[in-house]
Design a protein around this nucleic acid. Structure first.
Lengths: 165, 165
DNA sequence: TGTAATTGTTAGACGGGGCTAACAATTCTA
DNA sequence: TAGAATTGTTAGCCCCGTCTAACAATTACA
């Protein structure tokens, strides 16, 4: 009755598989081994073996040559990864002005290693600058100015500014 | 979630070893296998084997039972890691208000996977908020207010903010 | 509907990086 | 200066996640 729970976190690879399955399964679409392998840039046998492993942990339902589906628990884990992924991507694009592609790449790697505290703060940070983009605390504009000029705009203190690198 | 292509750089583990050696060797101090093993939380044989590997790549000089020293190239790599580490730590503490310990932990993991573009922007970001902490763009204070109240301070636009009071 | 094309699985190997046990070198100290 | 204690190395094993080759199931279509 009582389910084994205490699973420690998944590895980066396993999180990637869960994330991929969740994304491919959006809108009840059928998920295929081949799609997963293409999405993650691995060969099909790697997917099969990952599915076996995730099945054993009851994060995925998978029958030979058959359907692939996240369990309730697996979905929970996947959603968590995706949430982190999205927040990181937003941070990189919105706050740092990074291009979408690089932002995604970094999000993909960092999502597996960042602490929940930092993750939460980062998300709050994005919320903050999106909630507070105008007016006197116009952060993105000032940051952009700084990136372009190497020093803060007129209305900032200049203490501690390095003139060059 | 798309997997990255293999990077030409070192693995996270090898970067950790280089970083540890550089840190332990500060001020010409003698570096010992045991110290490295303690610093990284691995057993001594793991260190020995890492040293062998890094020696083959000419990043480290190491003779049996003898001295351990970074080569010019090894030092370059190590300095690079340390630079990223420091910038990340500063970001987490200064910008996000994260405690030192968590900040270090996150830095340790993220330093190995973040892109150079994001790294650079993150560093600039810290420079920016340190250069621009006062006056009208007082970012840290506004961010702190947001963290505590869940909404931006009065002098920010309220778009997208939920009123809850 | 029979066969070719495609998709999925199994088996087995490999490299990375960690560990333990046992042994060797070095250093301490009585 | 001879053990004893400590530090470092070697050998060998393990797990993880990947791969290739070969084979099996499914699907497509002529």
């Amino acid at each position: 009755m009582v389910k084994q729970k205490a699973q420690k976190g998944q590895s980066a690879s396993m999180e990637d598989y869960l994330e991929a399955i969740a994304n491919l399964g959006e809108g009840r679409k059928v998920v295929r081994v081949k799609q997963i392998s293409q999405m993650l840039g691995v060969k099909m046998p790697s997917v099969t073996s990952a599915l076996r492993k995730l099945s054993e942990q009851e994060l995925v339902e998978h029958e030979r040559y058959g359907h692939i589906k996240l369990t309730r628990e697996g979905n929970k884990v996947a959603r968590n990864v995706i949430r982190r992924h999205k927040a990181l991507t937003r941070f990189f694009t919105q706050a740092l002005g990074i291009d979408q592609e690089t932002a995604e790449e970094d999000a993909c790697r960092i999502e597996h290693v960042i602490s929940s505290l930092s993750m939460e703060r980062l998300a709050k940070f994005v919320e903050f600058i999106e909630a507070c983009p105008l007016g006197r605390a116009n952060f993105p504009a000032r940051y952009k100015y700084y990136l372009e000029h190497g020093q803060p705009p007129q209305d900032c203190s200049k203490r501690g500014v390095k003139e060059s690198k």
